[in-house]
Design a protein around this nucleic acid. Structure first.
Length: 433
RNA sequence: GGAGAGUUGGCAGAGUGGUAAUGCAACGGACUCGAAAUCCGUCGAACCGGUUCAUACCGGCGCGCAGGUUCAAAUCCUGUACUCUCCUCCA
């Protein structure tokens, strides 16, 4: 949620910057109109309420003295009607104002690339050596199905498209990868959390998924209760401190969690239909930070480095790009995407997205701290994947494949993989005799 | 799932229709070499609107939340969330 007071001070700047993310300036004009009307009505009703409070006090005094107050009461009846009329209209205006405000995306941070879509993103870092193969590298789904460690057919049988079974060393590899990631983040000062996977609407609103992006999620209706399957651990992690004041000596707070993420992928029909890249359910290790405003951009760089460090230790090539105004998510002010090299397609694929939302989510979820003067301020919240686990497994399978169809396990994962160094047809699925 | 109790300021805690006692804490001052104790004073979150460069001041709102009744609601009515206790069930 943006700050209407700041918007009022420089409407043209807000119009210009939000237009760069695709918001029609007409929407802003409507909001400013509503804000004017709103404040006018507030002034009117508050004046009447002040009068009513005044006279009611006199009525009270008169009654105590056993004097008649009938005239004043009659007068206040009329005032009361007027108040309730104005309040009714104010309620409508306010509601529309709030709804429109809630649909406005965050302001882009100064200095990030300006452009309508992903073509304007800027690569600013390239790390690792892109592997070369003496044979034609296979896609991870072919490698995995040949080994029997991923079963997309049975996933479809039991749940539908974009669901999968990990089997044997496939399941163990997934577990090795996320345990490795969690340990790495803990060493960097993150506190591990195991959050709820079902959250209420208020929580979804707090991080900015609602009201605008309801079609992207799975919802559960159980009698009178409506809950949403989390599309990312960012939602329960960021809302951990919702409606709270974080003691300033605790800042910055770093938390991390492994959770499944559930996404309906409405609108992605036909994209990435094979493999682990785009599933309705996938595991992700998420990092979330609560920071003082002055530190938040330094924290964003550190968080991006935490995500990168996982790939470095796994020996995977990647690059980092700064998302343009047109490609950023709704709540973000600035976003770094980390993309890992996928040999079969010969492209980098997103494996982490690290964002600073500044006070955008904190305003929605009411997450504050006290500054040096004891005044309440909104914290800045950051979130980033560290990393998408399924996509990491896919990247390992493709980058570490051998000509004979086996997969060599990155050294750092071996201790997390019961000492196994290679997935072969023989050890992949223990029940296969 | 059933029954009961509760939710008031940073904390404790009164308040059954007349506009939020009191105590602690906090802040300022006096006393003191300084501190403690004591005394005096200030302060009732956050939020919203207005005047102001700002400090500040005025007003609204404010007793879990949302409605309702009333000239007036912490107080009465309806709904609802959460916490606690007991019973029941359960991995």
């Amino acid at each position: 949620m943006l700050d209407i007071k700041k918007m009022r001070q420089d409407p043209d700047y807000f119009k210009k910057r939000l237009a760069q993310r695709g918001t029609d300036p007409v929407d802003l004009n409507k909001i400013f109109q509503l804000d004017d009307k709103r404040r006018e009505l507030i002034k009117d009703t508050e004046e009447l309420k002040a009068k009513r409070n005044e006279v009611s006090k006199q009525i009270g005094a008169a009654k105590r003295n056993k004097e008649s107050a009938d005239d004043a009461i009659a007068e206040m009846q009329a005032v009361g009607d007027e108040i309730s009329n104005i309040d009714k209209e104010l309620g409508k205006i306010n509601h529309e104002f709030q709804v429109r405000m809630a649909h406005l995306p965050n302001m882009p941070h100064e200095g990030i690339p300006v452009g309508p879509d992903e073509d304007s993103n800027e690569e600013f870092k390239k790390v690792g050596t892109i592997p070369t193969f003496s044979f034609e590298p296979k896609a991870h789904w072919d490698i995995a199905e040949d080994l029997g460690i991923l079963d997309f057919e049975r996933g479809a049988k039991v749940s539908g498209a974009r669901f999968v079974y990990y089997v044997g060393l496939g399941a163990q590899l997934e577990r090795a990868v996320y345990n490795f990631m969690l340990d790495e983040h803990m060493a960097e000062g993150y506190t591990e959390i195991l959050p709820p996977y079902l959250v209420n609407d208020k929580t979804m609103y707090g991080t900015g998924q609602f009201p605008k992006f309801k079609e992207d999620v799975y919802q559960i209706n159980n009698e009178d209760q409506e809950l949403t399957l989390i599309p990312t651990a960012e939602v329960p992690l960021t809302n951990f401190f919702a409606d709270e004041v974080i003691p300033s000596e605790d800042l910055p707070v770093y938390v991390t969690a492994l959770t499944p993420s559930f996404r309906s992928e409405a609108g992605s029909a036909g994209r990435d239909t094979r493999g682990l890249i785009r599933m309705h359910q996938f595991n992700k290790v998420e990092m979330v930070k609560f920071a003082k405003p002055a530190d938040s951009y330094m924290e964003l760089e550190k968080m991006t480095a935490n995500a990168e460090s996982i790939l470095q230790k796994l020996g995977l090539a990647y690059h980092v790009i700064k998302l343009s105004t047109g490609d950023m998510g709704f709540s973000a002010a600035e976003t770094n995407d980390v993309e890992v090299w996928m040999p079969e397609q010969n492209i980098y694929r997103e494996i982490s997205s690290c964002s600073n939302t500044q006070d955008f989510q904190a305003r929605r979820a009411h997450i504050q701290y006290r500054d040096e003067n004891g005044k309440l301020q909104y914290v800045h919240t950051l979130n980033g994947s560290g990393l998408a686990v399924g996509r990491t497994v896919a990247a390992i399978l493709e980058n570490c494949q051998n000509e004979d169809g086996t997969v060599t396990i990155p050294e750092v994962l071996v201790p997390y993989f019961h000492g196994i160094t290679k997935i072969t047809k023989e050890n992949a699925v223990p029940f296969k005799k």
